[in-house]
Amino acid sequence: MKRYRGPLLLALVLAVIAHVAVVKLEPYHFMRGAINRNILKGGINSWFEAPRVTSASRTVVHPSPELAYSACVYDLSKGPVHLRVEPMDEYWSLSLYAADAENFHAWNYRTSPQGVDIWLVKSQAVERQPPPGVAVVSSPSNRGLAFIRRHVVDDASWGLITQARKLDRCEAVP
């Protein structure tokens, strides 16, 4: 029995390490899937404006039929990305998710009634200064997802959301 103790202990340690690794990597795995799906739909550094949620929608689990979603996969490897969200009277929010699915920053219609206008960067050490009025926000990862939610009250508000979306920006700073 004694000769099995070493291998058993090693197997136990390896099992614990494997378990922790799988649990820690799971958010990255699902986030990578979401990022890749959005790249296919909208590319990189560009908003994908999701159609209205219906009973046929099968993109993200637990979709809300009362929300209009826009998603942008940002890539900061070549420099800052300019994010702009046109404000609306009804509820809206912008949430930023890092590669590990962490929601590291959020704005909404109450905290930012003027909308959002930022340069997203990998590090606070930005070589170029943004234009006046444009804030700098740093992301924990080079790639991530910017996500806008807007409240769809009725058919008329969907029309207003369509207009507002034309003024949203997600683009690499030239």
Binding site: V23, P27, H29, V60, V61, H62, A101, N103
Partner: peptide, 10 residues
């Protein structure tokens, strides 16, 4: 985080 990623990503 792992459970939210599976059932309520974003």
């Amino acid at each position: 985080r792992a459970r939210i990623a599976r059932t309520g990503l974003l």
